[in-house]
Structure formats: structure tokens, C-alpha cells
Write a protein that binds this DNA or RNA. Structure first.
Length: 299
DNA sequence: AAAGGGACCTGGCTGC
DNA sequence: TGCAGCCAGGTCCCTT
């Protein structure tokens, strides 16, 4: 569910809540939330006494740097994860899906809540970045969590090299939407913003990457960056209570969408009804007039 | 080696 | 009313 703008909203909220604080208590409420951690829930006891030095993000991966940054508490929200800051002793609303609780030395409590349980927390060592630049948005240290090192920089990362991204995209033998969703090529884009970016750039998601002009690939990524920045300014896209910020407030970008979830509605540019079709075990939404479908595909 | 398909979950909605 | 079937913001693993 949460894509880059939603995760960034969460990052900013966590940053305000925990940077400079020392972890005073950790409680893992569901083993599946820590399934990727060797040692399971017990390993998280090691968090107690550690200071949170930064909250960083790369694409949809989020982490708290601990002490000198050699270790991190990594989090992925999956399809339905949330972090909720609550007053001490107060249990957040979505009761049945509470997965973990983290308390800090100022008395604040942060809850990890996740209905569909695709999200997780992990305690990992960090590794140096390949380019020596900061590991992600919100980080000044040139490190990334080892288990997130395969994730590419995202479109809001000042250290992203757009020329390299355009070149590596055109070297892929696949379709442009598939490439946009490939988190090892460029991270942060999910199904909503891929559809929105393609609509803005007037490109059909099935166009093949190697046949697209470099300028067009660049336009698609520029559109993705623009739409994600606008969504971030709106607090993210919320369709229901599954995406909220750390205060429990939804974002309002859903009303600004032009393609995603709008099958049958008139295209805002030309009035042609938006089409929804199956793609990669999910859905694609596009304007059949503005976004010309490729005629034939080899392969 | 890289690309594509299915698995992993819970819950809400639709239509029979 | 009940429930089967479909759908949902993502990533990972396996097969080809």
C-alpha cells in the first residue's frame, strides 16, 4: 500500500518523534512481524539503551540508525503497515493488528500496526554505500542496512544519477511499467504512482523499455518524481484507514489521481473513459486515447 | 543472467 | 443471510 510519498510522511513523523531519544522498552506482539530476524523477538531486547541517531529512507524501506550508525532498526510497511505515536499507556485503535511497541526515554510510545502482515521489523548491521554518498533521504552517513543494499536510490534522493537510471532502464528487455516497479532499478514507485506517472507522460505501460527514446524515459521518471512530490505535499494517498501518518491522519492526494482506480471515469485531458486491465497480478489504469498501446511486442 | 509468475496474508466488497 | 470469489498501496523466491 504505501509507496514512497506515504513512507516519507511516516519517516518525517518518526524523525520528529524519536531522533535523539534512547530506547527504553521494546515489545514484539506478533512473531510474524520479526520473521526476517535471526533470533526472533528476543533479538530486539538489544535495542534497549540505544540512541536513535537518524530516521532514513530509501524507496519504501525505512530505518532508524542506532548510535554510531553501524546498526539499524529496519522497517518495511508492506501493504498495510503503520507506525502510530501514542501517549504513554494508550493503546492505538486498530487493536487486532498491533505488532510491536517501542518506548523511548521521554515516555513516548511508537506502535507498529499491520493488518496484512507483509510488513516487518528487522535488526541489521549497516554496510557502506557503493558510491560513498549518504545511504538515503534523512541520512548523513554513507551506510545502508545490509538487507536493503540491493534497493536502488529513489527519485527524491539527491544522490540519484538520472543519466545512469535512463541508460540502465533502456538496457532492460521489458516493459516500462515493469521497469518502474523494479526496486533494484529505481525504488519507491508502486502501482499507484506508476499509473499516474505514465498517464502524465502519455506513455502506455506496456511500451518496451529498449524501444523508448531516452527523452521519453526521462519524461516518465520526471513525471513520477513530480507526482510523488505533490502526493507528499498532500500527506500521501489514502483510500481507507490502512494508510495514515504517525498521528493517525490520512493523506488527501487520492482526490488528485487521474488514472489509478478510475476505470470508466472520463480522462481529465480528453474525456475518453479510463481503462483498467490486469498486469503483473495487479491492475493497470490508463487512458486508451492519450496513452497509445504498443502495436506488437516481440519476445 | 535476467525476466516473469506465484506465494505470502487479512479483510472488505460484490454478486449469486 | 451466507459465502465464494475477487481485489488491495509490496517484495521475494523459484523456475525458465
Amino acid at each position: 500500500m504505501p509507496e514512497l510519498p506515504e513512507v516519507e510522511v511516516v519517516r518525517l513523523g518518526l524523525q520528529g518523534a524519536v531522533v535523539g531519544r534512547v530506547v527504553s522498552d521494546v515489545e514484539i506482539l506478533h512473531p510474524r512481524a520479526v520473521r526476517r530476524t535471526a533470533g526472533g523477538a528476543a533479538a530486539f531486547d538489544a535495542l534497549v539503551g540505544r540512541e536513535v541517531s537518524a530516521v532514513a529512507r530509501r524507496g519504501k524501506f525505512l530505518w532508524l540508525l542506532l548510535d554510531d550508525g553501524s546498526n539499524a532498526l529496519l522497517a518495511h510497511l508492506g501493504m498495510s503497515g503503520q507506525f502510530l505515536a501514542q501517549e504513554p499507556g494508550r493503546v492505538p485503535e486498530p487493536g487486532p493488528h498491533l505488532r510491536a511497541r517501542l518506548a523511548t526515554d521521554d515516555g513516548a510510545e511508537i506502535w507498529f500496526v499491520d493488518q496484512r502482515t507483509f510488513g516487518y521489523l528487522d535488526l541489521v548491521a549497516t554496510t557502506p554505500t557503493a558510491d560513498g554518498r549518504p545511504g538515503g533521504v534523512g541520512s548523513v552517513l554513507p551506510v545502508v542496512p545490509g538487507t536493503a543494499a540491493h534497493i536502488a536510490r529513489d527519485l527524491l534522493d539527491p544522490d540519484l544519477d538520472m543519466d545512469v537510471l535512463v541508460r540502465s532502464t533502456r538496457r532492460k528487455r521489458t516493459e516500462i511499467k515493469r521497469a518502474m516497479l523494479d526496486q533494484s532499478l529505481v525504488s519507491g514507485i508502486g502501482n499507484i504512482y506508476a499509473d499516474e506517472a505514465l498517464w502524465r507522460a502519455k506513455v502506455h505501460g506496456r511500451r518496451s523499455t529498449e524501444a523508448l527514446p531516452a527523452a521519453t524515459v526521462r519524461e516518465v521518471y520526471a513525471a513520477a518524481r513530480d507526482v510523488m512530490l505533490e502526493a507528499l505535499a498532500a500527506g500521501g494517498t489514502s483510500f481507507d484507514a490502512l494508510y495514515v501518518n504517525v498521528s493517525g491522519t490520512p493523506g488527501y492526494f487520492a482526490r488528485s489521481l487521474n488514472a489509478y482506480g478510475l476505470a470508466g471515469e472520463p480522462c481529465a485531458r480528453c474525456g475518453t473513459p479510463i481503462v483498467r486491465e490486469s498486469f503483473m497480478n495487479r491492475s493497470s489504469h490508463y487512458c486508451p486515447a492519450c496513452q497509445r498501446r504498443p502495436r506488437a511486442r516481440r519476445r
